[in-house]
Structure formats: structure tokens, C-alpha cells
Design a protein around this nucleic acid. Structure first.
Length: 236
DNA sequence: AAACGTGCCAACCGCGGCTCA
DNA sequence: GTGAGCCGCGGTTGGCACGTT
């Protein structure tokens, strides 16, 4: 499981993290946050590279991580999103609150892929062509069918936008949100609706997963969906 | 009980994208 | 426009844990 401790060419420690290192990193990040992963280990008193610290925090030490015990709903969601988006684990993880991309990736390779290969019934029937997912999510009771990218199914541009959504890199930390990129990809501009979008967000208190889906053929509704899709990442 | 095989998952590595000077 | 620095992602690996022979 753990790797043999060693040093890289810069003298940085590699391999398994010790409880003391975890304690230092957790204490530092809890107190100061992570403003620069590269510099952080120096100030936190760790002989680790920033990348290693980031990985340890993101995949293990973060307080809100849920580990193991995948529900059927979660597995169902993973399989569907994998089918839809491919190995975009970070994007898939963004739809599974408290799960990390690394964990999803491991779970996929060690469990789900094999089970699918054996045609073990694992998920509800769905057609890959329609890029539509019934989000029967583990953390709530959303059952209303909707497109995974938040694109209304009756939108004339839905196919193009879904394609754009799937093909774009869906980094939750991107300075542009995914759907905004999608819209650019299919020829929409921002259309100057940021102010009203911001005001909506300020007023909105509902959860993304429980909010009624807006089906208007309305650009702003796309932006709102996008904002909500990734809103849970703002914690970080 | 020992040897061997396999599963699992934490951690590493390399690359690409983004930001900023 | 460009190059450096940094971050995040996805693929891969190392090695412990556990099962089987």
C-alpha cells in the first residue's frame, strides 16, 4: 500500500506520509489555507514537494472526504458519467460530493470496469446517445431527469452544447466555468448577463441537487445551472 | 505454516493548461 | 507574443493486505 520512503533529487521526501507529517499539513492548511502549494511545505515544516502536499491534502486529509462504501447510486452515477465523459475523473468527481477523483479512478479500475466487463447488472438502463442522466444522487433525492451538463433537453442547441461539454476539459478550478466554455465552443458569447446572474446567485439559497430544473430556452438559465453544478467546489 | 498470486489504493510522474510578467 | 512558474489531471506504479494453494 504505502511506498518506501525515499528522497527525490532535490532532497524532498517521497513515499508514505507519516502521522506527524499529516498533522503538520492539516494544521497548517486549517490555519492558513493553501495559497501556494509550492511554498507551503517550507512554511509548514515539511520536507515534501508542494505537489505531494497538494495530493495528500486533496485525496486524504481534506475534512469532508467520504471514503469507501460506495452506494449503488454512486456507482451508477460513476458508470454513467464515465460513459458520457470518458476518464474525466475530476469532472465525474465534481458530481459526486465528497469523493475524490483519485478514489473514483481507483474504484473504477478495480471494481466497476471489471463488473461491467462481466455484464453484471450495475446500473439503470440508459442510452449513451442521449447524454442524459437520471441523477439519482446519493446525497439527495433528485429524481428528475436532466442532462448531465445542465443543458435543457428541449434546447435547440442541446446536442452541440452537450458535445462541447463532453469534449472540453472540465476543471472545476478553471477560471471559466464549464458551461461558459461550452457556450463559447458553440458560438455563444457571455451576452452580458453576469450582473443578473450574480444577483441570482446571491439570492439563491437552494441546493443544486434539489433545485427545480429550469427548462426555458434561456442562456441565463444555463449559466445558473453551471454555477450550481460547481458551487460545491467553492469550499476549496 | 509457508509460498505464491491477486486486489486494492496511496502516491508518483509527466504533461497540458493557465496566469502573469 | 513568449517564456517561466505553478497547478491540476489522468495514467501508472509500488507495495501492503488478503486470499488461495
Amino acid at each position: 500500500m504505502a511506498r518506501t520512503p525515499g528522497r527525490d533529487k532535490n532532497g524532498m521526501k517521497k513515499g508514505t506520509w507519516t502521522p506527524e507529517e499529516d498533522k503538520k499539513l492539516r494544521a497548517y492548511v486549517s490555519k492558513y489555507g493553501f495559497w501556494n502549494w509550492r511554498q507551503l511545505p517550507k512554511y509548514a515544516g515539511l520536507s515534501r514537494c508542494g505537489k505531494s502536499c497538494r495530493l495528500r491534502w486533496m485525496n486524504y486529509l481534506r475534512p469532508d472526504i467520504k471514503r469507501g462504501n460506495y452506494t449503488k447510486e454512486e456507482e451508477d452515477t460513476i458508470v454513467r458519467l464515465q460513459k458520457l465523459l470518458g476518464n474525466k475523473w475530476s469532472a465525474i468527481a465534481s458530481h459526486l460530493p465528497r469523493r475524490t477523483d483519485n478514489e473514483l479512478k481507483n474504484h473504477w479500475h478495480t471494481n466497476l470496469k471489471k463488473r461491467l466487463g462481466q455484464n453484471t447488472p450495475l446500473l439503470l438502463s440508459t442510452t449513451p446517445q442521449e447524454a442524459t442522466i437520471t441523477e439519482n444522487h446519493s446525497c439527495d433525492h433528485e429524481v428528475e431527469p436532466k442532462n448531465i451538463s445542465g443543458i435543457p433537453l428541449n434546447c435547440p442547441m442541446a446536442p452541440q452544447m452537450a458535445e462541447g461539454f463532453a469534449s472540453l476539459h472540465l476543471s472545476s478550478s478553471s477560471s471559466k466555468t464549464s458551461l461558459s466554455l461550452c457556450m463559447e465552443a458553440v458560438g455563444f458569447s457571455n451576452m452580458g448577463c453576469k450582473a443578473s446572474r450574480d444577483s441570482y446567485i446571491a439570492e439563491s439559497t437552494g441546493s443544486f441537487w434539489t433545485e427545480p430544473f429550469i427548462t426555458d430556452n434561456n442562456i441565463e438559465s444555463f449559466l445558473l445551472q453551471d454555477e450550481r453544478l460547481f458551487s460545491h467546489d467553492l469550499f476549496y
